Simulated assay, not measured.
Amino acid sequence: MQKRRLILASSSSYRKSLLSRIVENFTCHAPNIDESPLATETPAQTAPRLAKAKALALAHLYPDALIIGSDQTASCDGHLLNKPGTEANALQQLKLCQGKTVTFYTSLCLLNSTNQNLQLDTITTEVSFLTLTETQLQAYIKKEQPLDCAGSFKCEALGSSLFRSLTSTDPSALEGLPLITLCAMLRREGFEPLS
């Protein structure tokens, strides 16, 4: 039996790399939605809303597919941590996180565009940061340039040197695409990653 077409509603190189760990053939398509948080939203509410919106945005283009939408937000002391964009912003975010626990919300939506069945889940990851010097933080930013990463670090690389610990039910969630959760969702749609 031929597998249903798989669409990743993202232009993120990180998510593309993650998905390629479990699936060989898929199409990436940027959903081009407004990703701004709403004024009344918490980070825990923003991530699932955007993950769902990304998948739904492509449903009319791919009427017989499984569409994956994902979004991640992070919160420290009630502050939303965005992609920093600049080294100065990255330093400011990392200084805020020192000695604290940051909560990451990684939401995943799988839409079957044939029957409109939609699965939505959010994986919470708690990251406890070490207390490091400003010099150490600047050195990290210079080496890794995490300017397009929420929270200003890359957990799959040198970013792990900033942590005391992390707790999650799905380790790949912190990287941006929860693969354990995705495999379970795909199987519920009859798509077997191991076949």
Rank of each mutant, 00 (worst) to 15 (best):
S70L: 03
R188P: 02
E175P: 00
S11F: 01
S13Q: 11
R49E: 13
F26M: 02
G69I: 04
L130W: 04
S172C: 04
Y140G: 09
T167F: 02
L132T: 07
T86N: 06
A90D: 11
A55I: 00
S113L: 09
A88T: 12
S12L: 11
T131H: 10
E126S: 09
L186I: 10
R15H: 08
Q119Y: 11
H79I: 13
L50C: 03
E41M: 11
I123M: 07
K16D: 09
K54I: 01
Q145S: 12
Y105C: 12
Q92T: 14
S107K: 12
Q116E: 14
T40L: 06
A74P: 02
A55W: 02
S195T: 06
N32P: 00
L61P: 00
G159S: 12
P84S: 05
L147S: 05
M1F: 03
E175N: 00
F26N: 01
H79N: 11
S36R: 15
K16C: 14
L194E: 14
K142V: 13
L182P: 09
Q119R: 15
S113D: 06
G159T: 02
I7H: 02
L186T: 06
S107Q: 12
L58A: 05
L110H: 00
A57G: 10
D34G: 01
T42W: 06
D170S: 06
T73G: 00
L38E: 10
A9D: 05
P43R: 10
T86H: 02
L111T: 12
K154F: 11
S168P: 15
C76M: 04
D148P: 05
V102A: 08
K83G: 04
F104W: 08
D77C: 09
T135F: 03
E41R: 12
S195N: 03
S36E: 13
L94W: 05
Q72N: 10
I123H: 07
T106W: 06
E144L: 08
A47M: 09
R164P: 00
D121H: 14
L177V: 04
A150H: 09
P43W: 06
L132N: 11
R21D: 01
Y140K: 12
R5V: 03
C109F: 03
V127H: 01
K16Q: 15
A150P: 03
L194D: 11
I33A: 01
C76T: 13
F153T: 05
I123Y: 03
L177Y: 04
L120H: 11
E189L: 00
Q72D: 05
H60T: 13
C97Y: 05
C155H: 10
G69R: 02
Q92E: 14
E35T: 08
L66I: 07
T73W: 08
